[in-house]
Write a protein that binds this DNA or RNA. Structure first.
Length: 487
RNA sequence: GGCGGUAUCGUCUAGGGGACUAGGACACAGCCCUCUCAAGGCUGGAACACGGGUUCGAAUCCCGUUACCGCUACCA
């Protein structure tokens, strides 16, 4: 190019087939494409590859949309449904037939299967032999006149097909290892590689970034682009995600659907952050990043060629990091509906005491890795009285009588405190401990059980503050009478 | 079997000829902090698959071996 031609605006796509939920591997491929588009001022497109009518379902298509939307990986143009384009796929295949780049193959499928089985029995690899399909003009005319079914096969030329892969560098395939593959089935429907190339050309895709498992499709697709007279896009093959046993991630490894993580209390930004780091590295030691930071720092040089193992422990840690650092209002917005679903309070009730609710969340979020854990630990802030956990009772209330006495004194002291502030209460109770000649813990631990029913909770003075004066005193009184009865 | 890809702590990774006694993070262990639990801080154990080259010098470049993964359909 001699003249200064403006660089083409990048166009990338995510092209899942709707045969299940949105898999974490797919989500990561989508993320890399999305990140690329955001980073390089490009366009991110979504194409639903629904040409396998037997396996594709609307339900799955919806699940993919929902997963993508939850993650915030939104697409820039209308969704393309591959199934709507079969007429073009068919036409492109026929263009190839007319130009001589492809030919008709009348070999029955059963014959192919037989030959393949035979070769396999011999321990050989079966490769379609072009001469099998050679027909004299008369024979061809006769078969055509008889309406005999035929598939269209691509005539793979001599030579080598290679491309500079964005993540792997140069990859080359000798064409002799590629068989004349079918592009149009005998029923007139297009085969995967044909449909993909036809659509990617139509969508003006400039970079095809997809899973490693497509590497061996790529030379076939490049050949198709050339035969169709289209510009070959860039390719980048990102590695697969494996389970802890090094095998392809599957249900055996636990949750693999993005939706599963959503329902387990993951934050989308944590999921994205974690996924980004599986197969990509910014090049330094910074790991916890917000979405804008991810976009800012993303670059194709950091993309890896090696498969990564999905480590849920690190994912949860990552979630904890995000949970602890995002604005508290954001946490409130996410957790409020979960609190409502748990039957603790309604969203509007929470909105009415927004500040109080955020205070509670501040206490809980630092101790939780998943939003579900926050909900599980929030109960004590919403009920009147609490149930005393048996283990907590036996551990912290071993001597019922003595404990009741201490709790009674604690109650009396708190009832007369000037202000219901943590520092003031702490001061008062530490003084009480000193007067009684015991350590602070001897007061705090039994008090914790009285207030929460448990041995673990946020700091006891924060609990007092957020449970509130009335309820706190009532719970302590209740604990005292419980202990008196059992002694 | 054929073709292709990959190879640094258990896991995610930094590293692109000398700065490497191989750095960080998760997980694990210990300590500190401390009213419990977290969070946080500190410390510890833990890796360049193997063999040949190239080079004054290799985790880094080349070749081979091995292992693992993927593809090998009128599936996508």
């Amino acid at each position: 190019m001699t003249a200064a031609s403006p660089a083409k605006r990048p166009r990338v796509r995510f092209a899942p087939s709707p045969t299940g939920f949105l898999h974490v591997g797919g989500a990561r491929t989508a993320l890399f494409n999305w990140l690329y588009a955001k980073k390089y001022d490009g366009v991110f497109l979504l194409r639903v590859e629904d040409t396998d009518r037997a396996r594709s379902t609307d339900e799955s298509t919806r699940a993919i949309f929902e997963g993508l939307e939850w993650l915030g990986l939104t697409w820039d143009e209308e969704v393309v449904y591959q199934g709507a384009n079969v007429a073009r796929h068919y036409a492109d295949a026929h263009r190839l037939l007319e130009s001589g780049a492809a030919y008709r193959d009348f070999t029955p499928q059963s014959e192919l299967e037989r030959l393949r089985a035979e070769a396999e029995a011999r321990g050989d690899a079966f490769k379609f032999d072009r001469t099998m399909a050679e027909l004299s003009p008369e024979a061809l005319a006769e078969k055509l006149a008889n309406n005999e079914p035929y598939a269209i096969r691509f005539r793979v030329p001599e030579g080598t097909t290679e491309w500079p892969d964005l993540v792997h560098g140069r990859i080359a395939f000798p064409n002799k290892d590629i068989e004349d593959f079918i592009i149009l089935r005998s029923d007139g429907t297009p085969v995967y590689n044909m449909a993909v190339v036809s659509d990617d050309i139509a969508m003006d895709i400039t970079l095809v970034m997809r899973g490693d498992d497509h590497i061996s499709n790529t030379p076939k697709q490049i050949l198709l682009y050339r035969a169709l007279g289209a510009e070959v896009p860039q390719f980048g093959h990102v590695p697969m995600i494996h389970g802890t046993d090094g095998k392809k991630l599957s249900k055996r490894h636990g949750a693999t659907a993005v939706g599963d993580y959503q329902h387990q209390g993951l934050l989308p930004q944590a999921m994205l952050n974690f996924l980004a780091l599986l197969g990509w590295s910014p090049g330094d030691d910074i790991e916890v990043m917000t979405l804008p930071e991810l976009i800012e720092r993303f670059n194709v040089n950091g993309l890896h060629a090696k498969a990564a193992v999905f480590d849920t422990k690190k994912l949860e840690w990552m979630n904890g990091q995000h949970l602890a650092s995002i604005p508290i209002d954001e946490v409130a917005a996410i957790v409020a509906p979960l609190i409502e679903r748990a039957g603790l309070a309604t969203v509007s009730e929470l909105a009415a005491r927004h500040e109080w609710f955020c205070g509670v969340l501040e206490l809980l979020r630092i101790r939780a890795r998943l939003t579900d854990e926050i909900v599980a630990q929030a109960g004590l802030f919403f009920t009147e009285l609490v149930e005393f956990d048996a283990d907590a009772v036996s551990k912290q209330w071993r001597d019922a009588d003595a404990t009741a006495n201490i709790l009674e004194k604690t109650h009396a002291r708190l009832a007369t405190v000037d202000s219901w502030e943590p520092a003031v209460m702490e001061d008062a109770l530490r003084k009480l401990a000193e007067e009684l000649g015991i350590s602070g813990g001897k007061i705090f631990q039994p008090l914790r059980v009285a207030l929460t029913g448990l041995t673990v909770s946020p700091g006891i003075f924060d609990v007092l503050l957020y449970v509130g004066r009335e309820r706190s005193l009532a719970r302590i009184a209740n604990a005292v009478s419980y202990l008196r009865q059992s002694s």
